[in-house]
Simulated scan of single mutants.
Amino acid sequence: MTVFSPEVVDAVLNHMNGDHVDDNVLIVKAFSGREATEATMNDLDEQGGTWRYVAEGEEHQLHIPWPSAPLSERPEIRREVVVLYDAACEKLGVTPRVH
């Protein structure tokens, strides 16, 4: 059982999938090593986030551990997603935007 309420999980997923569509794809490309064409964050808990993505016409799932797991508070989720985003940018040679 996650330490985050269903309302917190839903709010984060809605935010990531509504406001950070490109970031989801970037994170999945970097951590899956595949050329993802679309990606959505579909779950999270104190240990990491889970994304569903499409690569080469097939759907896949990828769980990425939070660098500072386990998390216990909602603000930590944002911090960890930013860490994953920055790491993805570095791996892929993409200039990150200012947070």
Rank of each mutant, 00 (worst) to 15 (best):
V9H: 08
E46F: 15
D10V: 12
G49V: 09
T37C: 02
V12Y: 06
I27A: 00
P96S: 04
L13G: 00
L26P: 02
A88K: 00
V82N: 08
I64E: 08
E59S: 13
E7T: 15
E90P: 01
I64Y: 01
Y85W: 01
A69H: 10
N24H: 03
D43Q: 11
N17E: 03
L44V: 05
R34N: 10
N17A: 01
P70L: 11
C89L: 05
F4C: 01
F4R: 02
Y85R: 05
G33F: 11
E80R: 04
Y53A: 05
E46R: 13
H63C: 10
S72T: 15
F31M: 12
D10W: 14
H60F: 15
M16H: 00
K91R: 15
V54R: 08
P96V: 03
R34L: 14
E80Y: 07
E73G: 11
V98N: 04
V25Q: 00
H99A: 09
E90W: 07
G57V: 00
H15S: 10
E90V: 04
T95R: 15
S72I: 06
S32N: 13
I27Y: 00
S5N: 06
T50I: 04
R74G: 04
N42I: 12
G33I: 11
P6V: 09
M41R: 01
Y85S: 05
I64P: 01
E59D: 11
N14A: 14
L44A: 04
P67I: 06
Q47P: 13
V8R: 03
V54N: 10
R78S: 13
D45L: 07
A88M: 00
A55V: 04
E7H: 10
V25H: 00
P65S: 15
L44C: 00
R79H: 15
E7A: 14
K91N: 06
S68H: 09
H15A: 11
V25S: 00
V9E: 06
E58L: 12
F31S: 08
N14F: 09
I77Q: 02
A36D: 03
V3A: 11
T2M: 07
V21E: 14
H63A: 15
V3K: 11
T50Q: 06
G49K: 01
V8S: 05
L92K: 03
V83I: 08
V21L: 14
L26H: 02
E80D: 04
E35W: 07
V3N: 09
G48W: 05
V21W: 13
M1P: 05
V81K: 13
N42M: 11
A30K: 06
A30R: 03
W66G: 07
E35H: 14
E7R: 12
L13V: 01
H63P: 11
